[in-house]
């Protein structure tokens, strides 16, 4: 079973200070740490689990700048066989649609039974690339997948809906799944695997190799701004003892205890 996994290197912003840079359209990235997008790491792990079961090859692909190769190498260390970087520096501004078109053009000569992507990237939060790519390739897709049981020809997948409900689908291969977090437990790369992966070559594709002339950008960032406050929070300050004391009093006043 040959699987392509699309991954993205994203800044880790959940616990970091995020500031807008001088252009007003980008954030200051030099102080942030970067890592594989969260749901992509689940997508990769799912591919590795299937490879362990069925054999075959995993190709990881990422549209990104030079440092993305570090992330691709980690993917190689975690079980991917081949890695491709598409030079983001060749393509100006990107959105989910444009990214999917570029990826489509760059995998045209690859064989695959499945393509996995993460269900959302934590930086631009589009949730577009996977489903768009499936449509461009004219293969069936399932998004937000949290369970896969596949044979060579068809796959039973569970999609996660709202309110804890799941949807059981039966799809034919080749197909694309966007993977939701929690489907498995992503592994860390062992040192030996890292050493082997460090020596592997990463295929780099640029504008010349991607012959599609009609790549379109749907959307462009005009400005970034700090979300307006929807509600004025009252911060309870002081030492943990003081702030907790104030809060306990509020509970009391409101009759909550």
């Amino acid at each position: 079973m040959d699987i392509i996994v699309c991954i993205k290197r994203v800044p880790q912003t959940a616990e970091a200070d995020v500031t807008i840079d001088y252009t007003g359209k980008e954030i200051e990235k030099d102080r942030l740490s970067f890592d594989m997008n969260e749901s992509d790491s689940y997508a990769l792990e799912e591919a590795v689990l299937l490879k362990e079961k069925f054999g075959g090859e995993i190709t990881v692909i990422s549209l990104g700048h030079q440092d993305t190769e570090d992330t691709l190498r980690i993917a190689l260390a975690k079980g991917a066989d081949n890695a491709i970087r598409i030079k983001a520096e060749d393509f100006d501004e990107l959105d989910g649609y444009k990214t999917a078109q570029i990826i489509k053009a760059s995998i045209s000569d690859l064989n695959f039974d499945l393509i996995f992507t993460g269900c959302i990237a934590t930086d631009d939060a589009y949730s577009q690339v996977g489903v768009t790519l499936a449509e461009l390739l004219d293969i069936p897709h399932a998004s937000l997948v949290i369970f896969i049981d596949t044979s060579e020809k068809r796959a039973h997948v569970h999609r996660e809906l709202e309110g804890g409900l799941m949807e059981h689908l039966d799809i034919s291969l080749p197909a694309l799944c966007t993977i939701q977090t929690g489907i498995n437990e992503p592994r860390y790369a062992s040192l030996i695997a890292i050493r082997r992966a460090a020596k592997k070559e990463i295929k780099v594709l640029g504008k010349e190799e991607i012959k599609d002339e009609n790549i379109l950008l749907n959307t462009q960032i005009e400005e970034l701004f700090i979300p307006p406050k929807t509600k004025e929070v009252e911060f309870l300050t002081g030492s943990p003892g003081e702030s907790a004391g104030k809060l306990a009093n509020i509970f009391k006043e409101k009759g909550l205890i």
Partner: peptide, 16 residues
């Protein structure tokens, strides 16, 4: 750092 040193660093940091 070499590639393998960089990878080791990022993976060990994450694990730690």
């Amino acid at each position: 750092l070499t590639n393998d040193q960089k990878m080791l660093q990022s993976e060990v940091r994450k694990f730690a």
